[in-house]
Amino acid sequence: MNMGVLLRLALLLLLVAFLANPQAFEPLFAPFAANGAAAIYTQSSLLSLTVSHLSMVAAATIAATVVSVGLAILVTRPSGREFLPLSRSVANIGQTFPPVAVLALAVPVFGFGPIPTLIALFLYGLLPIFENALTGLASIPPSVQEAARGVGMTDTQRLLRVELPLALPIILTGIRLTAVISLSTATIGSTVAAKTLGEVIIAGLISNNTAFVLQGGLLVALLALFIHEGFGLLEGALTRRTRSVQPA
């Protein structure tokens, strides 16, 4: 376990060092560059691309979380319950839409730039969070609900102090899934001129320069890894907290 922590710390340091000073890693990527081409992408700074990539993913994920958790709350209330079966099947159908196709279909409507990417990331991010929020809210034991009602909590109190806290770990799993998928999907956004790390990969594909593909791909993979781990830690902490509350 300690080895794993050390390895992760080392990787994180490596990532930070690479973003701070990409040129220092030039010898590492040079063997992959084709016939003396540049080994490090310099068209835009890798740091600014990373920042813009991450902020796009964050914005889309936050928006998707607000909307889908809101919807999940709505369809699990008595007044919205008739929409539950439909929303389930729409979420299921929606997940079959390929992210690339969503992106391609958004371009004609919204033009080139970051907006189609944001929309595709938002739409594609809705479904995993919605599904998980539904599961989380629906899997609360009836006895717990009953107890909350028994101590005289109002509907709002029950939602905010019982249902949402108990469902939070599962909702977080959904957010984690969305964030990791979005991170990878955002690279495709560069085909429609969004500023993401995909720009580096595409530049590599076009000029046949594996060094670019490698650094773009590795950066995104490392970011995905750390986001995955970060959410994992958060979920673990939350689950421990809920467990320690439950026996009481």
Binding site: G198, I201, L205, G216, G217, L218
Partner: peptide, 17 residues
């Protein structure tokens, strides 16, 4: 699992060489 985190576009490109 780690393989899945590599963005699809990059994996396509990395397999070329």
């Amino acid at each position: 699992n780690i393989l899945q985190t590599i963005p699809s576009m990059a994996l396509f490109g990395l397999l070329i060489a």
